[in-house]
């Protein structure tokens, strides 16, 4: 279940709804990403996120399908903001459910790495000094590249079964 939201959402409500959907799972992991109020040495006054529908949704759907292939998930939820946000507002909510914690943790981490680097979003940061478009940091690419080592995960799965 994937949703792009042009308006603010409540991670607490999203988690409560997810817990209902995921009833029966042994493990639920959720992650909430928030707008930071600092970037480098500048005060962040706001963030603007552009998506390109349906390309953005299709890409996230594909990453979710990949996650389901890699880990035995029983439920999955992604909510991502678009438009204008202020400091401390939620940008993204990812929740995963599985029989055991490892799969839920890893799948949520994998999905966040996709969302931070490859997802089709353009992000503009507004500071007192002006506004600028942000491109991924080198470490975001490194985080994302961790998941290309697919056989490591397969081994890990085998160990945890």
């Amino acid at each position: 279940m994937i949703k792009l939201s042009p308006t603010s959402f409540s991670p607490a409500e999203a988690l409560a709804a997810f817990e209902k959907d995921a009833r029966g799972a042994g493990a639920i992991v959720s992650f909430t990403g928030l707008v930071r109020d600092r970037a480098g040495d500048a005060d962040v006054e706001g963030l603007h996120l552009q998506a390109y529908s349906p390309m953005t949704e299709n890409g996230i759907e594909k990453a979710a399908a990949d996650a389901r292939k890699r880990w035995p998930l029983t439920a999955l939820r992604i909510i991502h903001r678009t438009g204008d946000m202020g400091p401390f507002e939620p940008i993204v909510f990812v929740a995963t459910a599985s029989a055991h914690r490892r799969a839920a943790f890893e799948a949520a981490d994998f999905l966040m790495d996709y969302l931070k680097t490859e997802a089709v979003f353009w992000k503009k940061e507004l500071t007192k000094a002006g506004s600028r478009w942000i491109e991924p940091r080198a470490e975001d690419y490194i985080d994302s590249a961790r998941w290309t080592q697919t056989d490591t995960e397969t081994d890990r799965h085998a160990r945890h079964k």
């Binding site: 990403g33 996120l49 390109y52 991502h80 903001r81 940008i91 993204v92 969302l115 931070k116 680097t117 490859e118 997802a119 089709v120 979003f121 353009w122 992000k123 478009w133 942000i134 491109e135 991924p136 975001d140």
Partner: peptide, 10 residues
């Protein structure tokens, strides 16, 4: 037709 600079992620 869309002109797409490198995507910045969310």
């Amino acid at each position: 037709i869309a002109f797409m600079p490198p995507v910045g992620g969310g």
